[in-house]
Write a protein that binds this DNA or RNA. Structure first.
Lengths: 340, 340
DNA sequence: TTGAAAGCGCTAACAT
DNA sequence: ATGTTAGCGCTTTCAA
């Protein structure tokens, strides 16, 4: 089954074993050009019998084509990014392209390293989360000469193409909905936002809109690390301890929102009359909680799909220009946000 | 910032711009061999100024070394696999190796394709979930001549090395704990297991151990697709409708277990006196539920770490032999399983 | 400490 | 329909 020495098989081995030139073997294996059925069959049979696996490294070097798309995201355990990946994978499955994922852990320097590493494999395109990058990263992206799509945030200046929602707008919209719901004393609980630009922009859009309507955040708290459900409970308890009059809490994500929801339900709070809640993301995982949390869909799946489609289109037609797609985040009222 | 034409920069460009040979540039960029400080500095400065990014494709072809480890898993949205990935990444971060992930969607044919695709990049090793593969996949793995670690299941015959728990044993252990807790009429709710071998093995170990103790599963049901929390609710409701006497439900994963738990709490069930519950996986995400679900830790993080360490060791010393590590799954009683 | 030559395994381009 | 030749951009090996 294995070849005698430990050398991986080459095209030449298949060529010799099947009695046709390397070039013809190559053509058969890539379904290129004209090859007679007889030859084709013989080559395929031989390749299969020997257990030949082509060497893409050599192929890529020779053709200067690499059918890989670098996908650079902060995390895989966030629930948010697997969904984006699904969209990307779906779209790429219709092409020759394949995604390769790099994880940055939300750290700009790590992003820079991962990007450098991935670009050194000369991928056909890059999909990268966020629109904030180090100057070095932006320079690399520009210099790469390949299509780049920044995703999940359109508030800023993209290197090339961009697809996503405006988080500033998402925050605004939620603030408007909350005010229309008649809530007055509003608190905010979220992650520490020094590096989570999207959460920060939502927060900014949120507070600005409240301010325009003469409302100021009654209280706020930011956490880092730990179980989101537990944090949601704890922070909600602490917030209400400090400010018992609060009648709405806006959470920076659905998980801490769910923690807060569970806590308040146990306390017997009247939701959404006495107190309303909203999260962010539209995490399907949470369907099945005792009460459906108000949230906002970040269009993650579509964003992934669209981004991949842009790359695919650009690979086929390098002359195509940059694209900017701002999706509209939609509120899901659930059962924790009073309708106007 | 970008070079005038669209051609990516090569070593030669740096060589010409810095006035030293390509070879010396190469040495500087890889910290190899003796290069004078003056030369090193000049080369690094030039490379940075030009924005040179090395071409790993060419490097890999020339050196026949690829510092990539193929990691092949069924899914990224399962909560289980991101944790394994964390362990793998941690261990690889201490080496020159880098993980590249392929997703199979639990489909053997897709696994075969992904494997072929990844092997064609000539990685330094393979970490692959499960011990059941198509014969073609096994043949590829054997023929690849690189270290292979199958993970998360040790019940079967590995191609090379294997790290994980015995799911059969996990099922047995949970059955024993439930019986010792004094439960008698036991139901099972889980995923359809045609392709989820690990869930199947747990189920088999579970029922066999019950049988040895003269107990037969009182009722069971299998689902596919949909929100796990919702399914957990629905199936629990249906099960208790059919068999109101049931005093324990074993779920094939923590999420449907959590759905069942929430449902039963709403119904005012006395847990764990009148009815006990247990899931599987030890999903940290669920900390913060009103009650802590009994579960079993599948040692995912350690499994990932260990697997990566085995690959790294083998890369450094190709003569090392295969390794088999069976971890011991530990029960977490939580608050839903009566202790003996 | 530096450089020159050869070639990794494949494919583009050009024969035949 | 098939074969030949010349690289792709780097590293290995050997020479200076």
């Amino acid at each position: 089954m294995t070849n005698s020495d430990n050398r991986p098989l080459t095209l030449r081995d298949v060529s010799e074993a099947s009695g046709v030139s390397e070039m013809t073997v190559s053509r058969v294996l890539r379904n290129r050009g004209d090859v007679s059925d007889a030859t084709r069959e013989r080559v395929l049979e031989t390749a299969k019998r020997l257990g030949y696996v082509p060497n893409k490294i050599a192929g890529a070097l020779a053709s200067s084509r690499v059918n890989l798309v670098a996908v650079i995201i902060p995390s895989m355990s966030n629930m948010v990014f697997p969904e984006v990946m699904t969209g990307i994978t779906e779209a790429l499955d219709e092409t020759e392209l394949q995604p390769v994922v790099g994880i940055t852990g939300y750290k700009p320097e790590k992003e820079e390293k991962v990007l450098y590493e991935m670009l050194s494999w000369r991928p056909s395109g890059v999909i990268i989360a966020g629109i904030e990058h180090t100057e070095a990263s932006r320079a690399m992206l520009r210099a790469s000469g390949i299509p780049v799509v920044e995703i999940m945030d359109v508030d800023g200046t993209p290197v090339d193409s961009v697809v996503g929602i405006s988080h500033r707008r998402a925050g605004q919209k939620m603030a408007e909905a909350i005010l229309k719901g008649g809530y007055q004393k509003i608190g905010f609980l979220g992650t520490k936002m020094s590096l989570d630009h999207r959460a920060r922009k939502r927060f900014e859009g949120f507070t600005e809109t409240l301010a325009k309507n003469g409302v100021e955040i009654a209280d706020q708290e930011f956490y880092t690390g730990g179980s989101a459900l537990v944090k949601g409970r704890e922070m909600t308890a602490a917030l209400l301890e400090r400010e018992p009059e609060i009648d709405f809490i806006y959470y920076s994500n659905d998980l801490i929102g769910a923690g807060g929801l569970l806590y308040l339900l146990e306390k017997g709070a009247k939701i959404p009359q006495e107190i309303g809640l909203a999260g962010f993301n539209g995490v399907g995982l949470l369907d099945g909680l005792p009460m459906k949390l108000a949230t906002m869909d970040a269009c993650r799946h579509d964003t992934g799909r669209k981004a991949a489609e842009i790359i695919a289109a650009r690979v086929n037609d390098p002359s195509a220009g940059p694209v900017r797609i701002a999706m509209e985040p939609k509120i899901t009222y659930g059962q924790t946000l009073r309708r106007p």
